[in-house]
Measured scan of single mutants.
Amino acid sequence: PAHPYDRLKTTSTDPVSDIDVTRREAYLSSEEFKEKFGMTKEAFYKLPKWKQNKFKMAVQLF
């Protein structure tokens, strides 16, 4: 299930529990994912792991 970005980011005051914290981005809706990352999930997962992590750090999901 998708969760709002505000509850997934590492600085959230009301974090979602029971998620894989190493894959926070996977819980974003497709729309919100595209808004935050500027690309689709499919394109994101084709990137090298280090680049994925760099993007995730930039949007507080790492």
Results as ranks from 00 to 15, higher is better:
residue 11 T to K: 01
residue 48 P to N: 05
residue 38 G to E: 12
residue 15 P to L: 08
residue 34 K to I: 14
residue 13 T to E: 14
residue 23 R to L: 05
residue 41 K to C: 05
residue 4 P to G: 08
residue 33 F to E: 01
residue 54 K to R: 13
residue 46 K to Y: 06
residue 4 P to D: 09
residue 26 A to H: 07
residue 43 A to F: 12
residue 40 T to W: 06
residue 45 Y to R: 06
residue 55 F to K: 15
residue 34 K to R: 14
residue 25 E to V: 08
residue 34 K to T: 12
residue 29 S to V: 08
residue 32 E to I: 14
residue 45 Y to G: 07
residue 52 Q to K: 01
residue 34 K to F: 15
residue 36 K to D: 03
residue 37 F to G: 00
residue 57 M to I: 13
residue 2 A to Q: 15
residue 20 D to P: 01
residue 58 A to T: 12
residue 44 F to Y: 07
residue 44 F to D: 00
residue 40 T to M: 08
residue 12 S to N: 04
residue 19 I to V: 05
residue 45 Y to W: 06
residue 61 L to T: 00
residue 40 T to Y: 06
residue 2 A to V: 15
residue 27 Y to P: 03
residue 51 K to E: 13
residue 36 K to Y: 15
residue 61 L to A: 08
residue 25 E to K: 02
residue 52 Q to R: 04
residue 25 E to T: 05
residue 62 F to P: 09
residue 10 T to H: 06
residue 7 R to H: 10
residue 42 E to H: 08
residue 38 G to S: 09
residue 27 Y to F: 03
residue 26 A to M: 15
residue 38 G to F: 05
residue 48 P to G: 00
residue 4 P to C: 15
residue 57 M to F: 06
residue 16 V to S: 02
residue 33 F to V: 00
residue 7 R to A: 11
residue 35 E to P: 01
residue 4 P to K: 05
residue 54 K to I: 10
residue 14 D to R: 04
residue 27 Y to K: 04
residue 9 K to Q: 13
residue 57 M to C: 14
residue 16 V to D: 04
residue 1 P to N: 10
residue 56 K to L: 07
residue 28 L to A: 01
residue 25 E to C: 03
residue 28 L to W: 03
residue 50 W to L: 03
residue 4 P to V: 03
residue 58 A to P: 01
residue 28 L to D: 03
residue 53 N to G: 04
residue 48 P to R: 04
residue 25 E to H: 00
residue 25 E to R: 05
residue 11 T to I: 02
residue 1 P to W: 12
residue 9 K to W: 10
residue 52 Q to D: 01
residue 11 T to L: 02
residue 52 Q to N: 00
residue 17 S to T: 15
residue 29 S to T: 14
residue 15 P to Q: 04
residue 30 S to K: 13
residue 20 D to H: 03
residue 1 P to T: 12
residue 54 K to P: 01
residue 5 Y to K: 04
residue 26 A to S: 14
residue 12 S to E: 04
residue 31 E to R: 06
residue 54 K to M: 14
residue 27 Y to S: 03
residue 54 K to Y: 13
residue 14 D to W: 09
residue 22 T to Q: 07
residue 23 R to Y: 07
residue 29 S to H: 09
residue 46 K to T: 13
residue 13 T to N: 12
residue 6 D to W: 02
residue 42 E to A: 10
residue 33 F to L: 01
residue 21 V to E: 12
residue 35 E to W: 12
residue 44 F to M: 04
residue 54 K to T: 09
residue 32 E to W: 05
residue 52 Q to F: 01
residue 40 T to E: 11
residue 9 K to M: 12
residue 31 E to C: 09
residue 11 T to F: 02
residue 23 R to T: 08
residue 47 L to T: 00
residue 24 R to C: 11
residue 46 K to M: 14
residue 50 W to C: 09
residue 18 D to C: 13
residue 6 D to Q: 00
residue 22 T to E: 07
residue 55 F to P: 01
residue 21 V to T: 10
residue 46 K to D: 11
residue 39 M to K: 00
residue 47 L to G: 00
residue 61 L to S: 02
residue 53 N to R: 07
residue 28 L to P: 04
residue 36 K to F: 11
residue 21 V to A: 10
residue 10 T to M: 06
residue 54 K to L: 13
residue 20 D to W: 01
residue 42 E to G: 06
residue 33 F to K: 00
residue 51 K to A: 14
residue 5 Y to N: 07
